[in-house]
Design a protein around this nucleic acid. Structure first.
Length: 525
RNA sequence: GGCGCAUUCGUCUAGCGGCCUAGGACAUCGCCCUCUCAAGGCGAAGAUCACGGGUUCGAAUCCCGUAUGCGCUACCA
């Protein structure tokens, strides 16, 4: 991964950056659990926006909800982001705008809240949660929209002083405009206008002294010089309230981009059970970060509707915010699998071995592990044979396990086919075994020649549709295939034999013959 | 309920007034290749562009309604 800003020679992109300030984007997750693919897709978009413009991507942890804090979630997030190949300015790497944990920035939120109170744009509210609940219940009973009734906004200075003197706990609320409308500009959707009567006096500071997300997010985006706020569309309705606060401070508003949600196949919000696992589980399932990124890139973004394969560097080159979509996308695992296969097929032998070996070792039976662990050249050869068949790295033990075991286990009947009963199979092996034992040149071309000669000289002939006859590799090849692998689906036979080596092949075919004899006896008896 | 956003093949999407009898990809099906499975090649099927009105010589594209989905409506983010 490149650590330097990529050369942005793209001349057609004028989207980046109305206002011309340095591009800084941020991913602002809350450590309240594990983040799924949809969250990381947003992070990808943010990272690409920054990188494309030669700007910076910031990781800021929104740990303002002490009740929902989940230990370990920050670490998992960082690990996930790293795994995808992103880099950033943030809590673990530092930067000029730290600290990057909101829990370490509490003083500044208080200061700014005080400032708003001083200028009349915020006020302390002493209403208890019980009263608020009661108030809401009444509003609902009257079928009114539920809103804070702003009682504390109109407290007299004397009442206020009395509450303070009594030591009543309070929150700080924004004194939102009561009339008119608030319009903000959504980069993708244009101006969005809300009637101010529908906007509540939101809480800025909670009674525990922590800011709400709604407040901290504004303060930090400003303090960290965030130029582009990219976030999920669930924030569309909150955006006007943020705009009001920016305006109360007289601050420049960032470019606001709301990206659509990623939905489950049943069109509901993505949840664990839909296969929307925590990102790192995809790693453990054998997915490649390149494939995940590419898949994510095209969920809600398109280049031209035709091209769909992009490396991270290429994404940085071509990414353009304006091509972001506005409607929700459904998580399609089948498509992810396809991307993963594509990227597996692109791997060099070394990359493939490095990536797949751990999965091989983890999935192989005990007795087979030593060989896989000790003979890397053999592992590479094997992996190469199955490269185009791997949908995930985790498929490796299943597909290639037989290369490493002492003897494959399988039902003897698997050796039989439509032109191959037990008797003929035994006969065939008896004839073939000596031929293979004699085989000196144990590589693909020579083996194929030998096998073909065997096929034609032992009467394996099939009739073609036009009535002419042709050699029929099928019965013999399949017999050997199963005998040597225990499977009906394998890489091509000659290359498989070449890789297995003469000793293993002969040993396995002899074992197959024994199986067939047992089978024949049983059937006869 | 209120407010907001969205709506093109099963899925991801292209499309920004005429090039669209709507293009690409995944998945599906068929054929080819072929020792199996893949991969690859070729092809098929699949979208009355949610619906209804407008605007226009002309609309998937612009406007207005309706429907549906989703989001917000917390001292969550």
């Amino acid at each position: 991964m490149a650590d330097h800003p990529s050369n942005t020679t793209n001349t057609t992109n004028s989207s980046d950056i109305p206002g011309g300030r340095p591009v800084r984007t941020r991913y602002a997750p809350s450590p309240t659990g594990f983040h799924h693919i949809g969250n990381y897709r947003t992070a990808l978009f943010e990272w690409l926006t920054a990188r494309h413009a030669g700007g910076r991507f910031v990781l800021r942890v929104e740990d303002t909800d002490r009740k929902r804090f989940v230990p370990g979630s920050i670490e998992a997030m960082v690990e996930g982001l790293h795994w995808l190949g992103l880099d950033w300015e943030g809590p673990d790497v530092g930067g000029a705008y730290g600290p990057y944990l909101q829990s370490e920035r509490l003083d500044s939120y208080r200061d700014y809240a005080e400032k708003l109170i001083a200028q009349g744009d915020a006020y302390r509210c002493y209403c208890t949660e019980e009263r608020l609940a009661e108030m809401r219940a009444e509003q609902e009973a009257r079928k009114e929209p539920t809103h804070y009734d702003r009682r504390c906004r109109y407290l007299t200075p004397e009442e206020r002083a009395a509450n303070e003197a009594a030591g009543m706990p309070s929150v700080v609320r924004f004194a939102a405009p009561l009339e008119g409308t608030t319009t903000y500009h959504d980069f993708l959707r244009g101006d969005i206008t809300f009637d101010n009567t529908t906007i509540d006096d939101m809480i800025l500071l909670k009674s525990d002294g922590y800011p709400t997300y709604n407040f901290a997010n504004i303060i930090d985006d400003h303090l960290m010089d965030i130029s582009h706020v990219i976030r999920g569309e669930e924030y569309i309705s909150s955006a006007p309230r943020y705009a009001q606060v920016y305006r109360a401070f007289g601050w420049e508003e960032p470019v606001v981009v709301h990206v659509p949600l990623v939905l489950a196949p049943d069109r509901t919000k993505l949840a664990k059970r839909h296969g929307a696992l925590p990102l790192l589980e995809y790693r453990d399932l054998g997915y490649l970060p390149e494939a995940i990124c590419n898949f994510l890139l095209l969920l809600g973004w398109s280049y031209d509707g035709e091209r769909e394969l992009f490396t991270l560097d290429e994404m940085v080159q071509v990414f353009d915010d304006r091509r972001l979509g506005t409607s929700p996308a459904i998580f399609d695992k089948g498509r992810l699998d396809w991307f993963n296969g594509v990227y597996i097929r692109k791997m060099t032998p070394k990359q493939l071995t490095d990536a797949a070996l751990p999965f091989l070792l983890a999935g192989l039976p005990e007795e087979a592990r030593a060989l896989a662990a000790s003979d890397r050249a053999y592992v590479t050869q094997v992996l190469l044979l199955d490269q185009e068949r791997l949908k995930t790295l985790r498929d490796a033990p299943e597909l290639a396990g037989f290369f490493f075991v002492e003897q494959p286990e399988y039902e003897a009947s698997l050796l039989l086919g439509k032109n191959m009963d037990a008797a003929r199979a035994i006969e065939t092996l008896d004839q073939l075994l000596p031929v293979l034992a004699e085989q000196r040149d144990w590589e693909h071309d020579a083996l194929l020649r030998t096998l073909d000669t065997f096929v034609t000289s032992h009467g394996f002939i099939r009739k073609k549709a036009d009535g002419t006859e042709a050699p029929d590799r099928g019965p013999v090849f399949m017999l050997v295939r199963v005998g040597v692998s225990g499977r009906k689906e394998t890489p091509g036979l000659p290359e498989m034999l070449a890789t297995l080596g003469k000793d293993r092949v002969l040993k396995r075919l002899r074992a197959a013959r024994t199986k067939l004899e047992t089978l024949a006896t049983q059937t006869a008896g």
